[in-house]
Design a protein around this nucleic acid. Structure first.
Lengths: 203, 203
DNA sequence: CAGGGAGGTTAGCGGTCGTTAACCTGAAGG
DNA sequence: CCTTCAGGTTAACGACCGCTAACCTCCCTG
């Protein structure tokens, strides 16, 4: 839980700015000179830190997927240790995903937008991490709503991801009703969506 | 309601293929030669039909936004004519959006991905159409759930759009549980999400 | 049957972009 | 004090890409 107080490395600066620029204008829409300028160095200087532009995107996407999966696993394990039910685990997963979506909006945008720009091996890795993350959710969701078939649960999970990942469309951070309220609203809506998916007896 | 039986014009072919390619690899990731090849002509031949590559994207995005807004307005007007309540109007809006998301998946993808690649004037137009569409929903949603503040309703609408627009992530059309089932699931989830947003008294 | 426009073709220009090459500099270490 | 090396710099190359120019070929029409 060591909260970092030391300054970010140049490498981390580059990744952060690259993520922002890629999210704003797309991978092909951003030049290496722009990324360099964003961290105060110029174009080719980036090649002291990364073998190429592709490598930056790859590291970003692998990092995102891995971070989501690791966080999800941790939350499932923690909750399983206590006496809480599956509902609490689901709440924890939702909370973690919302935190990520609200804190790292550019990364969320990249996550489902630029995957196809990766080399085959990297793309396979990211897809595998994503799949594991989805399966994590599917298991928990089916435990809470046993009526759901597995394909339906998977569709529901993907749809809730779409709901939670909508934060980049909610306007600039200032125009939101406040982070806490937004998080609470998203959480309620996600639970409501799952509940509706799990009970086909709607009017 | 004249269902078209005549063959699509060359212009329409181009737009359709361009939409698919843009959705797959991004606007900057597709060359005009590829678009031409996709319709059986080669590169510069496209310039007999469009003034430039940008114009294809512009026409696609303006078309999408306009189509959504027009359809939404029509549905609101139709339902308002009958004796049905706001709930029925909301259901109709959801149904229309789902139809669009399931039938024109590449367009849905483009819709919130490549907007920034447009000329200023086109982007303003698209944004204006989108805003009107959102306001259409917000009004209906607040009628059904009067407890929602206006900002909360707008956030909820954007989030439900994220949910409904998740169809491109649901795997290839073949792997879905069947179009009707998928549409029904999405519809239930959207209603559940709105209901949860509208009643802060969750446990 | 002339002729003109719609809708193609290929060749090529000009600009952009990712990447490499060659060089510079300041700080650390023996 | 000399060396080394991490981390920069600018110049330039080669590929790609959007677009234009110039030309061709049907087909429709008067």
């Amino acid at each position: 839980m060591a909260t970092r107080t030391d300054a970010p490395t140049r490498r981390e600066q580059i990744l952060k700015e690259a993520a922002r620029l890629f999210a704003e204008r797309g991978f092909h829409g951003v030049g290496v000179d722009e990324i360099g300028a964003a961290v105060g160095i110029s174009g080719p200087g980036l090649y002291r830190h990364f073998p190429g532009k592709d490598a930056m995107l790859a590291e970003l996407l692998v990092g995102i997927s891995g971070q989501l999966l690791t966080g999800g696993k941790r939350r499932v394990a923690e909750a399983a240790g206590g006496a809480e039910g599956a509902e609490a685990v689901l709440d924890s997963l939702i909370e973690g995903h919302i935190d990520f979506a609200l804190d790292d909006r550019p990364l969320i945008t990249l996550h489902d937008r630029e995957l196809d720009r990766l080399r085959d091996s990297d793309r396979k890795l990211v897809r595998q991490l994503q799949r594991q993350y989805v399966e994590l959710w599917v298991e928990v969701v089916r435990e809470v709503y046993p009526g759901l078939t597995e394909p339906a649960a998977r569709s529901a999970v993907h749809s809730v991801f779409g709901l939670l990942n909508s934060t980049p469309h909610l306007g600039r951070p200032g125009s939101l009703p406040g982070r806490g309220d937004t998080a609470a609203l998203l959480h309620r809506m996600a639970r409501g969506a799952f509940a509706a998916a799990g009970s086909p007896a709607a009017g």
